[in-house]
Write a protein that binds this DNA or RNA. Structure first.
Lengths: 193, 193
DNA sequence: CCATTAAGTCAATGAAGCTGTCTTAACTGC
DNA sequence: GCAGTTAAGACAGCTTCATTGACTTAATGG
């Protein structure tokens, strides 16, 4: 009875039709595509896409007795070889203790290397070992396939839009961290000009 | 140019310049925007955007002693009032036991209502109570602000692209679940259409 | 009537985060 | 050169959220 004519469903009708071609953000169209249902849909998209993307590497991880936290650490160390522990903490936004467990295992298993910082010997600069690079690549490959086909199917314009929206959703702080300049260690930030 | 020539950094230079206008996926441009660095960047975007988006509701949640799992359940029940437990499980892809704890608390606190299914009395159809709707709205509001400004800044075309990429990243199975038809209970699926 | 299904339950376990406190070593500023 | 700060690591204990496996109860449906 109460669900005879279900007025809902996760991807309910798109009011105003911005699913098609909203025509920029002209004054005439108003803010149709900002309407509530659009935002609810965006929540769904985030949840499902992120879940499925991350899940795609799980098979390999559980094979090795590793978790997603290990993958994240591996990813960012691979992304930024020579990163200091404190910088990695700032990227991941977890506590030192949470990272320590994960990082400790990665070092112990020979995936990550710690090197004393040449300028600041308190630092432990992190990088991937050869087997770390191989593992990271295996994990990446699964996600890469998904993203490549998504990008290909959506087309270049869509990819650009995707990136703009993703950046827009982030904290200002996070967006700053994504800028190359900010990603360099402080030492280089002064030198590289 | 504005970003020197950096060996690394999370958002390294965009090869081929798809940041500008890649011109669909023409044969000439090749698959420039599918290159490795692009895919790594996409991983970063997913991680940071999802993290910041979900984190934006955390303050309210922890105030009430609830977690993100509660928010997810609340969201999907609100999104699909009258949903059966088994359907919610399929959406979230967690185990019955994991959901039971969370759902039990939400019912106990008076945010979620369980009603015996009229056609199948084994089912417990879930819906939000008035206070459940209020809470969900408070949580939604934080995320909505973020997404609205991201959408507005990016523009309608970008939003469309965003949605296409997000869908493309999902499992086929998940994509099916997002279609309105599939969101209807089996009984109606036969009747409606 | 009996097999299947929807939901709930018990018990144990694991992954991944958190807080707070503390130590050690190295850098930095006065 | 000493004092204060910083980078990293470690100990103890806790919370959230997921897992598996086995089992019960009630309702459905051939």
């Amino acid at each position: 009875m109460e669900q005879k004519t279900l007025p809902h469903g996760l991807a309910a009708s798109r009011p105003g039709g911005p699913g098609g071609s909203p025509g920029e953000h002209g004054a005439g169209t108003g803010l149709l595509f900002l309407r509530e249902e659009q935002m609810r849909l965006a929540q769904d998209l985030f949840f499902f896409a992120y879940r499925d993307l991350t899940a795609s590497a799980d098979a390999i991880l559980s094979e090795l007795g590793l978790g997603r936290a290990h993958h994240r650490a591996l990813h960012f160390v691979g992304r930024r070889p020579g990163i200091a522990v404190s910088e990695l903490l700032a990227l991941l936004r977890i506590t030192k203790q949470s990272l320590a467990r994960v990082l400790g295992e990665l070092v112990e298993r020979g995936y990550v290397l710690q090197a004393r910082g040449p300028r600041d010997r308190r630092q432990r600069l992190l990088s991937l070992t050869e087997s770390g690079r191989i593992l990271e690549r295996r994990l990446f490959e699964r996600q890469r396939e998904r993203m490549v086909s998504a990008y290909r199917d959506a087309g270049g314009t869509a990819v650009d839009g995707f990136r703009r929206v993703m950046r827009g959703v982030m904290d200002d702080e996070t967006r700053r961290l994504l800028e190359p300049q900010e990603m360099l260690p402080p030492v280089l930030r002064r030198t590289a000009g």
